[in-house]
């Protein structure tokens, strides 16, 4: 007991360092959090959150009872899974490869250029994709035809949608996502690398045994955080790439809620869906965290 008190006293300064963040979060995130109750209410703007009538789980039932619910769950999970398989490892590979480049100029050029697509707005990006993928004038189909293939209607095929979505995501985001790994690699002990070289370790061995372990904690953190976002795919890009023809492969939770909202501004329904996402995400996050604790002995909490 005494040691606990002593520890608290000696580390009071650490609490001071955390304090500003705690105050901000309390005032700007927790104070308005009562809004989550809207999910269980028939929300009326006039009556406000507290005054609106309770409806229990009615808003959730509307989501679960929808004919499209299984479809949008499947599509959301498919896009997320693909993004874990494709979108997650590519930035790591990029960072490891770039770390091997000797010429600083080339390295900086590749880095800067690879961030650039991140700044292309979603609307313009989707416009570009539609143009490039056009069956009649699109460059990709022209290339396919050049090699004797037949034009592919990328945006008409429901089962091609996930590839269009995720590959373009990687294209646009890989450079930006690799920043954190570049930074982590910067703390690799150069002396260790030199020693390994003298010991006759190949480049691959050095990457595998020295560089990679250095960034594993970062990888683990990013992975756990990513698991906590599985159901939260933004609606904008999917919505812009959606056509009547590919709906069965492109309708996801957020686009569905957006469409329902177009018919009737319904805060209760969108809040309920958001809460459902949260619950699933949290379950996945905690699972990932426990898994990581078992495998790598480190987790977020």
């Amino acid at each position: 007991m005494k040691t606990l008190k002593k520890r608290l006293v000696t580390s009071w300064q650490l609490y001071v360092l955390v304090l500003p963040a705690v105050i901000y979060i309390a005032l700007f995130a927790y104070k308005p959090m009562y809004g989550i109750l809207i999910a269980f209410k028939n929300f009326s703007i006039r009556k406000g959150v507290w005054g609106s009538a309770w409806v229990g789980f009615d808003n959730f039932k509307r989501l679960f009872n929808s004919y499209w619910f299984p479809v949008i769950m499947k599509n959301t999970l498919t896009l997320s899974a693909l993004s874990l398989v494709l979108g997650f490892p590519t930035p790591i590979i990029l960072a490891l490869l770039l770390n091997e480049v000797k010429s600083i100029k080339f390295k900086n050029a590749v880095q800067t250029v690879s961030y650039a697509p991140h700044f292309i707005s979603t609307v313009v990006m989707c416009g570009m994709l539609t143009l490039f993928l056009s069956p009649s004038t699109g460059v990709i189909n022209k290339i396919i035809e050049l090699f004797g293939g037949e034009a592919i209607f990328f945006l008409q095929e429901a089962n091609l949608f996930k590839w269009v979505y995720e590959l373009s995501n990687v294209w646009q985001g890989v450079g930006w996502s690799s920043i954190i790994y570049f930074a982590a690699l910067s703390s690799v002990d150069k002396g260790l690398l030199e020693a390994a070289e003298i010991d006759g370790a190949t480049r691959m061995q050095r990457i595998w045994h020295i560089n990679l372990p250095e960034i594993v904690p970062t990888i683990v953190t990013m992975f756990i955080l990513k698991c906590g976002q599985i159901l939260s795919i933004g609606y904008e890009k999917v919505y812009l790439l959606q056509t009547d023809a590919n709906i069965s492969g492109s309708e996801i939770i957020s686009t569905y809620v957006y469409k329902v909202g177009l018919e009737q501004a319904d805060f209760s329904f969108s809040t309920a869906t958001g809460l459902f996402n949260t619950v699933v995400n949290c379950v996945l996050l905690i699972t990932a965290n426990q898994l990581s604790k078992k495998v790598t002995d480190s987790g977020l909490f």
């Binding site: 499209w68 009547d244 023809a245 569905y256 329902v260 018919e263 009737q264 319904d266 329904f269």
Partner: peptide, 25 residues
């Protein structure tokens, strides 16, 4: 009925839009 109708409408229109394309092609 507004809230119930909004989800029903979204479901039905989505399905009709896709079916329209599929039958035409």
């Amino acid at each position: 009925d507004g809230a119930e109708r909004a989800t029903l409408y979204t479901d039905i229109v989505n399905y009709c839009a896709t079916a329209n394309v599929q039958f035409i092609t």
